[in-house]
């Protein structure tokens, strides 16, 4: 199997896949944000219009979508900090793999704190 040439951490394995995931989550969040500002703008139309739109965010299916969105943000944010460390910390490139596993660990911990509470809200709360 050909190995990646020395001096790059963006070709093959952890370095590349984390870059792909960073890209995919970034685009996803961007498109969500476009829609999100439009739905929030309904507060300027009328309280009824806003409540009707936000009501669709409170269904179980959207609840799962919100969980996915939060997962995307949490990964993108923590991996973004990893990119900063790779770029600015002298030892960053050396520890980029270790740092990816730290990102994954922090991701799991954050989601473990978020998911139960959110899912309980979504499936038992409100209405």
């Amino acid at each position: 199997m050909p190995t990646a040439p020395a001096g790059t951490l963006y070709r093959g394995r952890e370095g590349m896949w984390s870059w792909v995931a960073h890209r995919v989550t970034g685009v996803l969040i961007f498109f969500f944000l476009l829609v999100h500002v439009l739905d929030t703008a309904l507060v300027r139309v009328s309280p009824e219009a806003y409540n009707a739109a936000i009501g669709t965010y409170q269904t179980p299916i959207m609840g799962l979508g919100e969980a996915g969105l939060v997962a995307a943000i949490v990964f993108h944010a923590f991996n973004g900090i990893r990119i900063l460390l790779v770029d600015f910390w002298a030892k960053g490139p050396k520890y980029q793999k270790v740092m990816l596993w730290v990102v994954v660990g922090l991701f799991v911990v954050t989601m473990a704190g978020f998911l139960p509470r959110h899912l309980i809200n979504v499936f038992t709360g409100g209405h």
């Binding site: 309280p47 806003y50 409540n51 936000i54 965010y57 409170q58 609840g63 919100e66 939060v70 943000i73 944010a77 973004g80 900090i81 990119i83 900063l84 978020f114 509470r117 959110h118 809200n121 979504v122 709360g125 409100g126 209405h127």
Partner: peptide, 26 residues
């Protein structure tokens, strides 16, 4: 990115975690 991390995590915490979470929004 660094500033957004704080702003967005704060936004999500207040709107999804506090009280009834997403159900409290109207």
């Amino acid at each position: 990115g660094v500033v957004l991390l704080v702003l967005i995590f704060g936004h999500l915490f207040v709107n999804l975690m506090v009280g009834d979470g997403v159900h409290a929004i109207d």
